[in-house]
Simulated scan of single mutants.
Amino acid sequence: MFGYVPVRLDEIATIIRGGNFQKKDFVENGRPCIHYGQMYTHFGVYADKTITFVNDEVFSKSKIARHGDIVMAVTSENVEDVCSCTAWLGDEEVAISGHTAIIRHNQNSKYMSYFFHSSAFFEQKKRLAHGTKVIEVTPSKLGGIEILLPTIEEQSRIVSVLDRFDSLCNDITSGLPAEIEARKKQYEYYRDKLLDFK
């Protein structure tokens, strides 16, 4: 599509392997942290608050994500969940556990995260995933992922459309399961169309 440039992820981002703190390091109050296991259970396309914390000492030895970084779990029990990610949009820096990659880039953070939730990305990550009981995508191999990249302005427009679909899917509550399912399918269709440009 005119105006969309295919780029490799490593042309627009630095990929940093996550840290090494564990669940036993969690404290009641402290510095915010994200554990890779929370990618599958708690975090969606973006987040600005964590649900867990570590003390200053653990934080100081951790790998850190900053506002706008993508935090991605690079191990999972299955191919579907590997590379689950969130765009960190919080004001504070956050400590990131092992089995993750921090993707530091110069694009629209939500656009990047939506792309990493799309079928265009899924097809590429399937080729990179390895393992049997534990599925892994080596962070260094993520650099070869190809993204069709529109301008920052167009990224913002696409994010605005996808955000509206996302809130429609997630704000409709009980009593409308068929409507929710239809909206989700519609959202997935448009997300993949907006991010694939074939």
Rank of each mutant, 00 (worst) to 15 (best):
Y4W: 15
P6M: 03
N20H: 08
F21A: 09
E28L: 14
P32D: 03
H35A: 10
G37H: 06
Y40L: 14
T41M: 07
T41W: 01
T41P: 10
Y46A: 13
K49S: 15
T50H: 00
F53I: 02
V58P: 01
R66Q: 12
D69P: 08
A73M: 06
E77P: 03
E77T: 14
E80F: 04
D81S: 12
V82K: 05
V82R: 03
A87Y: 08
I96W: 06
T100F: 02
I102T: 05
I102S: 10
R104C: 06
N106L: 08
N108I: 01
K110G: 06
Y111D: 01
H117K: 12
S118H: 05
Q124T: 08
K125D: 01
R127N: 14
R127L: 15
L128A: 12
L128H: 10
T132E: 00
K133A: 15
I135K: 03
E136D: 10
G143E: 01
G144N: 10
I145L: 11
E153A: 09
R157A: 07
V159G: 03
S160V: 02
T173D: 12
P177V: 02
E179H: 03
I180E: 04
K184Q: 13
K185T: 09
R191W: 02
K193M: 07
L194S: 04
L194W: 02
D196L: 06
